[in-house]
């Protein structure tokens, strides 16, 4: 029981980190960034390459992976999304899908479709409390999630750039009139979101050590539902949604059915959205005529 709880929180923390990326980008650019899941995959591969091919130790490889993904996020935003700033949201969505295909197939060409065994980057001993073993990966994941959460909340609440971010997400035009660099802020959001995706990729691959070009797709979709679950655009919401989703998935697997666990996750999401259409922590926006 407790083991399931710990596994659930650990998986949920990974979802939460990915969901944070979705939620921030959605809050600012009002777009569903479907390529986000594939940035996770790129992050995983980068860390894999750094440790396996270059023989780097754990922390520099993670930093390397974060750096590459951050740059990748900015490049994707500049090349594919920025020209469509004023286009319909569906057009942007399809472009994001195109980017997602692009990343997946590039990875397929470079690393082939054979799954790679991800090296164990967390070389800490497992913690045993009484009869329960807590794996070091789970501890690191939860710790990383809490640090990121606190850091992001402080960043958006206290710093000038964070305030600019919130201003842009509320009203782009007004923010621009106030002298905020809107394009720069959007790039920054993509950079942070992609950097987080890299960390999530490393954590995900540490917990489930098979790496394929499609590794990021399903966690991406689930994290996206987590973001909607918690109320899209809200940072604590993404966190809550992610952890709840992880718990539901692990408990569903343990007590109901292994094969149906995804169906259970999505069914709970639907029920929540029907009862509270803006997600758990979402704000209700009144319709104006």
């Amino acid at each position: 029981m407790l083991t399931y709880l710990i596994n659930g929180i650990s998986l949920g923390s990974v979802y939460a980190i990915i969901a944070l990326g979705y939620t921030m980008v959605y809050g600012i650019a009002k777009m569903l960034n479907f390529a986000h899941g594939d940035v996770i995959m790129v992050g995983g591969y980068m860390a894999f390459c750094a440790t396996s091919y270059l023989g780097w130790p754990a922390i520099p490889s993670v930093l390397f992976s974060v750096l590459v993904c951050t740059v990748l996020g900015i490049v994707i935003e500049r090349l594919a999304y920025k020209p469509l700033r004023n286009a319909s949201s569906l057009a942007v969505l399809i472009t994001a899908i195109g980017v997602s295909y692009f990343l997946q197939n590039t990875a397929l060409l470079i690393w082939s479709s054979n799954p790679k065994a991800f090296p164990n980057l967390v070389s800490l001993p497992n913690l045993s409390v009484g009869s329960i073993q807590i794996s070091s990966v789970a501890m690191v994941t939860v710790a990383a999630c809490i640090i990121i959460m606190v850091g992001l909340t402080l960043f958006t609440d206290k710093t000038k750039m964070g305030k600019a971010m919130r201003a842009v997400s509320e009203d782009k035009g007004a923010a621009q009139l106030m002298g905020i660099n809107v394009n720069g802020t959007i790039s920054l959001t993509f950079a942070i979101g992609s950097g987080l995706a890299a960390i999530a990729g490393v954590l995900l691959c540490s917990a489930y050590p098979t790496l394929m070009p499609t590794t990021g797709a399903m966690p991406g979709i689930k994290a996206f539902t987590a973001a909607v679950f918690g109320g899209i655009g809200s940072i604590p919401g993404a966190m809550l949604g992610g952890i709840l989703l992880g718990l539901i998935e692990i408990f569903g697997k343990a007590y109901i059915s292994t094969q149906l666990s995804d169906a259970i996750v999505f069914a709970v999401l639907i029920i929540v959205l029907i009862v509270k259409p803006t997600g758990l922590l979402g704000k209700k926006v009144n319709e104006k005529v």
């Binding site: 979709i221 094969q259 169906a263 999505f266 999401l269 639907i270 959205l273 029907i274 259409p277 997600g279």
Partner: peptide, 27 residues
């Protein structure tokens, strides 16, 4: 139930239903 929602929420619920159908048919 779904058509009470709007915009992106409707999109995500239809996505979820598609996945549920696939998952149930799978077993």
């Amino acid at each position: 139930p779904v058509l009470r929602l709007q915009g992106d929420y409707l999109a995500i619920v239809t996505l979820a239903f598609g996945e549920i159908i696939k998952n149930v048919l799978n077993c």
